[in-house]
Write a protein that binds this DNA or RNA. Structure first.
Length: 192
DNA sequence: TGAATGATGCACT
DNA sequence: GTGCATCATTCAC
């Protein structure tokens, strides 16, 4: 269990940074479906990214979950990250420099275990199989929960989205990344 | 402190 | 065939 501290919005087929920009395809089909559904895809050949569909059926939009602060089950998250790394190493996939020594993960503070979309998926054992899962189902193993009553809403900062440098304006600098600047788990720059 | 780099599979034109 | 909604490391300043 963790607290989501960083997300990005991808809205509509006009958004040239969104997978929906080509219209419905086999990969992005769930983006055009009902909201609350998971959309998981593979980037750069090795990292999975978790998205949540946000608009009613027919309108393509999703939120990319970029970072999570593990709160409960930190050991399980750590084990999942180790397992992910060892699995890749076992397959001989990846550059030896990138496939870091799995034991290095043990010295990582809990707040940095899921500081990035790829790391988050690794830490929670999320893969493309999870595409289509209803994240609002309170009984689902993978699900979204509301902020606990009484917990104060953090101050939210907005910035441009990350990793879309080749996307033309105005999409590239749309302030559609939302983060809690106070969290150690946030990936990358904290201000625009 | 920051920029450059490589590893990788697959969706897409 | 081309280009990614990434990450960790290396090298320069």
């Amino acid at each position: 269990m963790g607290r989501i501290v960083e997300v990005e919005a991808y809205i509509g087929t006009d958004d040239l940074a969104s997978h929906a920009r080509f219209g419905p395809t086999p990969r992005n089909a769930v983006m055009f479906g009902p909201p609350g559904i998971a959309y998981v895809y593979l980037v750069y050949g090795m990292y999975e990214c978790l998205n949540v569909v946000t608009e009613p059926e027919g309108r393509a939009a999703a939120i990319l979950i970029r970072a999570v602060e593990p709160i409960e089950g930190v050991d399980a998250v750590r084990a999942a990250r180790r397992g992910w790394t060892l699995r890749r190493a076992g397959l001989g996939i990846g550059d030896p420099a990138t496939i870091a020594d799995a034991s290095r993960i043990d010295s990582l503070p809990a707040g940095r275990l899921c500081s990035g979309p790829g790391l988050l998926a690794a830490g929670f054992d999320i893969g493309r199989d999870e595409t289509g899962v209803d994240l609002l189902d309170p009984d689902a193993p993978l699900r979204l929960e509301a902020r606990p009553a009484g917990e104060p809403e953090p101050a939210i900062r907005t910035t441009a989205r990350v990793g879309i440098d080749s996307v033309p304006e105005p999409w590239r600098h749309r302030p559609w990344r939302f983060l809690d600047p106070g969290s150690l788990a946030v990936s990358g720059p904290r201000r625009a």
